[in-house]
Design a binder for these strands. Sequence first.
DNA 1: GCTATAAATGACTCTTCAGTCACTTATAGC
DNA 2: GCTATAAGTGACTGAAGAGTCATTTATAGC
Lengths: 220, 220
Amino acid sequence: MNPETRPPRWQRRAEARPQEVLEAALAVFVERGYASARLDEVARRAGVAKATLYLYYANKLELFKAVVRHALVDNLDEVARLQAAAGARPGREQLTFLLHAFMRRVAGSPLSGIPKLVMAEAGNFPELARFYHDEVIARGRAIICGTLARGIAAGEFRAVDVDYAWRVVIGPALLAIIWKHSFLAFEDRGMDFERHLAVHLDMLFNGLAAPDQKGTRDEP
Amino acid sequence: MNPETRPPRWQRRAEARPQEVLEAALAVFVERGYASARLDEVARRAGVAKATLYLYYANKLELFKAVVRHALVDNLDEVARLQAAAGARPGREQLTFLLHAFMRRVAGSPLSGIPKLVMAEAGNFPELARFYHDEVIARGRAIICGTLARGIAAGEFRAVDVDYAWRVVIGPALLAIIWKHSFLAFEDRGMDFERHLAVHLDMLFNGLAAPDQKGTRDEP
DNA sequence: GCTATAAATGACTCTTCAGTCACTTATAGC
DNA sequence: GCTATAAGTGACTGAAGAGTCATTTATAGC
């Protein structure tokens, strides 16, 4: 054998490794949950040996926290951007924009596993759940509630109880992305997120009730 | 010491044990997930020794399956009862009845942990997730879709796409019970499930948009 | 090319539980 | 009361996987 034609057994890529490990770990944690996730599996998917993980993260828990923190930072950046972009447009347009951005940004990316992961592990890592609750959920809620309140004040929306309405607004979208990671494989036909969002928005603004349900029909 | 005043170290209660173990196991599995759940903890909460669990369930996996299967049977009974009770009433009344029953029956009981548990473990136990999907979700969906379709045919509901609308209908309710097991502890004020449902139903039927948003006001 | 050293590894240890088993004890039937 | 036995237990074992470490190897700088 020619030693010079044999490729190196590995490469030194100290800059790229942490990110790659994080991505592999996110996928494994989302699929299996914290306790069932095997670090051998994370290493395999990241293309390194298990011991290499420990060069970058002190232990499994620190890796887990880094995964969530990293995803969190991405989310917060996005939330801030949305908050700025939402501006003072009409409430309807604003909610449409927010939910579209949420679905496009989150639903299609590995990030979408984070809500499921945090919910599943809330009992095991309450500090993490609280962190997520306070930093992501509370901000998202504030944006939605603000938009709702302004819409109500402007006479654009009916006077719903915003403290409960915000969960009704985000519920179907959040459920859709949790669904994706749990049951999508069992659905005969897949789920079209665009279509889901379109139906969701239509029902959110216009309701289910036909407009002529007060006893008289205005149209044939 | 008087040997006759000393209470027995334990009692033989072969009829009650399995049920008690199942209840303790459900609580622990929901809180911690399958892999993190300790059988010592299950035994402690059921008031028995760990070895006693093995008198009634062959191993951890069988116990887990028994927990889900047991909860499933309860759910299916309920679903069948609802299906019968829903009858041929107007769609609006029917959906209100269904969601009320769902919230009252599920939200307040330990059963409410099952959806969270099954979602969290779907990656680890796909057969179980499929079972749940086919037996519980598919039936619930069929009931909602049927009600929607009949309401649309009767002109009571607008002609939404029922294949997507059903998730919008159940989404906020399902999210509420998942919430309860993950984030409720971090909310300043608790969540009033009755109030949540009231807001949910109001928005579901009437939508967010104020009725005078087409440019003209029909009523003062 | 040589060398220093950071990057990476494979084979190891040690802990944590799931699961077992020999033994104890409650209790039903005589 | 005695006894047979089912119900229950505490202390053990074995496996799996997190975490360690001595050794190997890629590569930057000279």
